[in-house]
C-alpha cells in the first residue's frame, strides 16, 4: 500500500484456548508500585511457546 504501512497486527480479538490462563504477571497501575500497564506485559503462553522453540 502506498499510504499505509502496517506496523503490528496481533489479532487481539481472536480469543484462543489459552486466553485467561492467569499465569501472567500481576499488574498495578498505581504510582506507588512500579505500575505495570497491561499492554507492556508479555503473555506467558507466548513465552512458553517461544522457549519450547515452536
Amino acid at each position: 500500500m502506498k499510504h499505509v504501512k502496517t506496523i503490528a497486527k496481533p489479532e487481539l480479538n481472536k480469543i484462543t484456548e489459552h486466553s485467561g490462563c492467569g499465569e501472567c504477571r500481576s499488574s498495578c497501575q498505581s504510582a506507588c508500585k512500579t505500575s505495570c500497564t497491561v499492554g507492556n506485559q508479555v503473555c506467558e503462553q507466548r513465552v512458553l511457546v517461544r522457549n519450547s522453540g515452536k
Binding site: A8, P10, I15, T16, H18, S19, G20, C24, G39, C43
Partner: peptide, 20 residues
C-alpha cells in the same frame, strides 16, 4: 517502563479486561 509496549505478544483479552 511506560514506553515498553508489547503490541504483538502482549497479554490475552481476558487480562486486558480486568487489569490488576
Amino acid at each position: 517502563f511506560h514506553f515498553v509496549l508489547h503490541l504483538n505478544d502482549g497479554p490475552c483479552y481476558k487480562k486486558r479486561l480486568v487489569g490488576c
